[in-house]
Measured scan of single mutants.
Amino acid sequence: NITNLCPFDEVFNATRFASVYAWNRKRISNCVADYSVLYNFAPFFAFKCYGVSPTKLNDLCFTNVYADSFVIRGNEVSQIAPGQTGNIADYNYKLPDDFTGCVIAWNSNKLDSKVGGNYNYLYRLFRKSNLKPFERDISTEIYQAGNKPCNGVAGFNCYFPLRSYGFRPTYGVGHQPYRVVVLSFELLHAPATVCGPKKST
């Protein structure tokens, strides 16, 4: 009989979020998941679920829940969905086509923008091939755009693969920082350890 609540607040209220190319993952297990707390949290810009209804989450049990978190621009949030393409979905964070879970995003301009620009948040701009679902690539190898080998030196046709967002408070909404948490639900042939409040007695 599990009684402790799942530590969703640790994920959602973290002081610093990860850059999207180096997205953070927390495994959540052996706890009671009260999703209504999240669902009623006012400032969400997006709360979209795939393969599961957000209002039914509290009735369900899962083997594991993974909480992935990172920061992207407002106009990139739409790429955090199954079957998407674009710089983020291709080179930074890719969801599987059969994704079961929820994508939760909110504007973090007050936290993550600075006058003069916040350059701490990076994304991958160049990559030889697209990421596989949930693949994480933190390499900083110089990207070779031409035929000539770069030998690890940036220059003509040789690019550092990461780019900084440089968030400023005055940017338009599409270019403002958004914090994103992706909850993915794993249902294995194993005992369920993460259940909603109704199922955990």
Rank of each mutant, 00 (worst) to 15 (best):
57 L>Q: 06
148 K>R: 12
150 C>W: 02
60 L>P: 08
184 S>G: 12
143 Y>N: 02
167 F>P: 00
98 D>G: 09
13 N>Y: 08
103 V>M: 04
106 W>Q: 06
121 Y>L: 12
85 T>E: 08
96 P>T: 06
14 A>E: 08
115 V>W: 15
89 A>R: 04
186 E>S: 11
200 S>K: 13
82 P>M: 03
121 Y>E: 02
120 N>C: 06
66 Y>D: 07
4 N>R: 15
87 N>L: 15
23 W>A: 02
32 V>Y: 12
58 N>L: 08
161 P>A: 07
193 T>S: 13
135 E>N: 07
112 D>A: 03
35 Y>F: 15
76 E>K: 03
28 I>A: 07
80 I>Y: 00
143 Y>P: 00
54 P>H: 12
37 V>A: 14
134 F>Q: 09
22 A>V: 06
26 K>M: 12
64 N>G: 11
154 A>R: 11
96 P>N: 08
113 S>K: 02
126 F>L: 06
159 Y>M: 01
21 Y>I: 06
56 K>W: 06
112 D>H: 02
141 E>P: 09
103 V>R: 03
131 L>N: 04
65 V>T: 07
36 S>L: 08
65 V>N: 03
194 V>D: 11
196 G>H: 11
139 S>C: 07
81 A>K: 08
187 L>T: 15
37 V>T: 14
198 K>M: 14
198 K>T: 14
138 I>A: 11
120 N>H: 13
137 D>Y: 04
102 C>R: 03
74 G>H: 04
198 K>G: 15
39 Y>S: 14
190 A>W: 10
11 V>C: 05
11 V>H: 04
94 K>L: 02
95 L>P: 01
141 E>C: 07
6 C>D: 07
168 R>E: 00
103 V>C: 01
51 G>Q: 09
117 G>Y: 03
160 F>E: 15
63 T>H: 10
181 V>H: 01
69 S>M: 07
183 L>I: 11
120 N>G: 14
167 F>G: 01
99 F>Q: 01
179 R>N: 00
83 G>H: 11
108 S>I: 01
29 S>F: 10
160 F>C: 08
131 L>D: 00
92 N>F: 01
117 G>S: 03
34 D>K: 08
55 T>K: 13
180 V>F: 03
138 I>M: 13
146 G>R: 03
29 S>I: 08
159 Y>R: 02
23 W>K: 01
59 D>W: 09
3 T>Q: 11
160 F>K: 15
127 R>F: 01
15 T>E: 13
147 N>F: 06
151 N>K: 12
75 N>R: 14
157 N>E: 00
128 K>H: 15
198 K>D: 13
115 V>M: 11
158 C>L: 02
26 K>G: 03
151 N>W: 10
156 F>L: 06
153 V>E: 14
171 Y>V: 02
58 N>P: 14
65 V>Y: 07
175 H>G: 01
66 Y>R: 06
130 N>T: 14
100 T>K: 13
71 V>W: 02
115 V>A: 11
67 A>G: 03
60 L>M: 15
161 P>I: 03
111 L>F: 11
173 V>W: 13
103 V>L: 03
17 F>L: 05
4 N>W: 08
90 D>P: 03
63 T>P: 08
163 R>A: 15
44 F>V: 11
72 I>C: 07
137 D>G: 02
70 F>H: 01
76 E>I: 03
133 P>E: 09
140 T>F: 10
160 F>A: 14
12 F>I: 08
188 L>D: 15
170 T>S: 06
175 H>I: 00
126 F>K: 05
107 N>A: 07
39 Y>G: 12
16 R>A: 11
163 R>P: 07
147 N>K: 06
114 K>Q: 13
95 L>E: 00
50 Y>W: 14
75 N>M: 15
99 F>K: 02
47 F>P: 08
33 A>N: 08
28 I>G: 05
200 S>G: 15
188 L>E: 15
83 G>S: 08
40 N>M: 09
21 Y>W: 09
129 S>E: 14
81 A>G: 08
31 C>F: 07
200 S>T: 14
144 Q>K: 08
79 Q>S: 05
79 Q>L: 04
108 S>V: 05
114 K>V: 10
149 P>N: 12
104 I>T: 05
169 P>W: 04
135 E>T: 08
42 A>P: 09
25 R>D: 00
